[in-house]
């Protein structure tokens, strides 16, 4: 078991190292000069030269890579060219919106999907199952930004329960913050929940066909109790994989939803940085997102270990 964790941890480190090299190469070493790219075609040569010096482009590539990585390890992501502010601070500010939003959405999606998927599996082929399958089909098909606009029309403009967008900041109070994130979280969560519910349903259906479920019934467990005691945890194994993927997506993939709700999140930051050719910000945020994805996968692996004793090795 310790070996398993160690192996996973080493592969995590390796993945981080490889991806940092790839990101560095793509952004800094690819053909074309980053400084002149950032300043555009009409830039003065001396401005370009100044930026080159500021970015350290006159130094050898290896040295630049090492100082970039070492800087990040110490929390120094460099200075944004367009905002003239430390990138680390900018990312931290945005994370305070994006991370709670992702967790909120993931929690909603899980809370909806697991029971709904289990319900559909338990009533396979009956009316309840058909309804769930139809609704989730719709949920998978509908684009989340369109759904987001419907939510705004309904709950912000018509009913005026929530504000239509923007984020007051956590200083305004926990309740205010959660209120502001609610509609975006729902808009993000429902399509994800639709996918997750379908996965949950098919995972549980597979489990229901297993011999040990028959053993459970033969013991005298009622069907719902057998599903609860023996089915759910076994069905969670494939569901965990999807959950990990979904969290990564929710953190990085919320760009459109952040635009719709005018939220100062990471997605918007990358989007703006790309349009303004602020490569320093792009590089750092991409690295951060890669780090998150790899970390989440590591946590999912640990969760497998918790759920499935067969992975713990023979003790």
């Amino acid at each position: 078991m310790i070996q398993f964790v160690m192996r996973r941890f080493l592969s995590l480190i390796a993945a981080l190292a490889v991806s940092s090299v790839v990101i560095f190469l793509v952004i800094e070493v690819a053909p074309g000069d980053p400084a002149s790219f950032m300043l555009g075609i009409n830039a003065q040569p001396d401005t370009v030269a100044a930026l080159r010096a500021e970015l350290g482009l006159d130094q050898p590539k290896l040295q630049r890579y090492v100082s970039w990585v070492l800087g990040m390890l110490q929390g120094d992501f460099g200075i944004s060219y367009t905002y003239r502010a430390p990138v680390g601070q900018m990312i931290a500010d945005r994370l305070w919106v994006s991370l709670p939003l992702a967790i909120y959405a993931l929690a909603l999606s899980t809370l909806i999907a697991i029971p709904v998927g289990a319900y559909a599996a338990a009533r396979r082929g009956r009316a309840g199952d058909m309804m769930v399958m139809g609704a989730t089909q719709l949920g998978v098909a509908v684009p989340n930004f369109w759904f987001a606009m419907l939510l705004v029309l309904m709950f912000a403009i018509k009913l005026q329960w929530f504000s239509a967008g923007g984020f007051p900041g956590w200083e305004a109070g926990l309740g205010q913050g959660i209120m502001a994130l609610s509609l975006p979280a729902i808009a993000l969560a429902l399509p994800q929940a639709a996918i997750l519910a379908r996965i949950m349903r098919s995972a549980l259906l597979d489990v229901l066909g297993e011999d040990y479920m028959r053993t459970a019934r033969a013991k005298g467990l009622s069907r719902p109790r057998a599903i609860w005691r023996h089915g759910m945890r076994n069905a969670m194994i494939p569901v965990l994989t999807i959950l990990g993927l979904q969290f990564s997506f929710l953190l990085a993939g919320a760009i459109i939803i952040e635009q719709v709700f005018y939220l100062p999140g990471l997605g918007r930051l990358v989007f703006q940085a790309i349009t303004q050719r602020d490569l320093i910000v792009v590089e750092s945020v991409v690295m951060l997102l890669v780090f998150t994805v790899i970390m989440v996968n590591f946590l999912v692996d640990l969760a497998y270990l918790w759920v499935d004793p067969r992975l713990r090795g023979d003790g």
């Binding site: 053993t215 033969a218 009622s222 945890r233 076994n234 759920v307």
Partner: peptide, 27 residues
């Protein structure tokens, strides 16, 4: 059904063919 749950396991026990898959792997 609820009366049958009192019979199964209590009055009638059952042994299956496939010992490899008849037990819950996570318990």
């Amino acid at each position: 059904e609820s009366a049958l749950c009192q019979i199964r396991g209590r009055k009638i026990g059952m042994i299956f063919q496939e010992p490899m898959s008849a037990l819950n792997p996570l318990q």
